[in-house]
């Protein structure tokens, strides 16, 4: 009897299906990923049962940080450049074309327009580091009002959303809302997270109003 020879083959697994799957997932996540621009303010938004998605374009977003600083952004490079030019004229500050083009691509900002020129002259990394004081919304110096107006003039289609932090206090929110009401913006959005409708209330909410 000859010895039973043991085959010394290394156990190899066919990895092809796994790799297929891995690449499929990579492709999926790559395509669905949207590059989130870094915001100068971290906002943890409250949640609500509202199901309405945010429009992706033509939005003014007014962020209120947890330290009650107000930040402003609007999408669209053309809108931003035009808005800045008009704002400069209003406040007698002339922005160079370079500054306009930088402004067109940055995200939200929260500083008085008087400091904006200096901010735009900073480098990309420096801009991230700097602590922004927030846009003035006081009744004496309400620049938010002008930003909203100029953004709407530059792009009449824009809608306005307020993205407030859980811990922002009500007086600031009230100031922002009053600013909008002064501009006859009566309809606006509050950006919230998702939350399930409590089960026992579903029946109540589904009922049509008796009016």
């Amino acid at each position: 009897m000859s010895k039973v020879k043991m085959h010394r083959t290394t156990p190899s697994i066919d990895m092809t299906p796994m790799v297929d799957l891995a690449f499929l997932l990579v492709t999926f996540f790559m395509l669905t990923a949207t590059a989130t621009p870094d915001e100068p303010v971290q906002v943890s938004i409250p949640s609500s049962v509202s199901q309405m998605p945010i429009p992706e374009r033509d939005m003014i977003i007014i962020s209120i940080g947890k330290d009650n600083k107000v930040f402003f952004t609007v999408d669209g490079q053309f809108t931003r450049a035009k808005m800045l030019k008009e704002m400069g004229q209003l406040y007698n500050i002339s922005f160079t074309p370079e500054e306009e083009s930088i402004f067109a691509v940055i995200t939200s900002f929260g500083l008085p327009i008087q400091n904006l020129k200096q901010y735009l002259s900073l480098g990309r990394e420096e801009r991230k580091e700097i602590a922004q004081p927030g846009i003035p919304v006081d009744s004496l110096n309400n620049q938010l009002k002008d930003w909203v107006l100029q953004a709407r003039l530059a792009n009449p289609k824009v809608r306005i959303a307020i993205k407030g932090d859980d811990d922002a206090t009500y007086p600031v929110v009230k100031k922002v809302i009053n600013t909008l009401l002064d501009r006859k913006v009566n309809r606006f959005n509050l950006i919230t997270g998702k939350e399930a409708m409590p089960d026992e209330m579903k029946a109540v909410a589904a009922k049509k109003p008796a009016i």
């Binding site: 809302i177 009401l181 959005n189 950006i191």
Partner: peptide, 12 residues
């Protein structure tokens, strides 16, 4: 989870 929005209409 994309954030949602809640629309409110304030009186004039």
């Amino acid at each position: 989870s994309k954030p949602q929005t809640m629309e409110i209409t304030m009186p004039e």
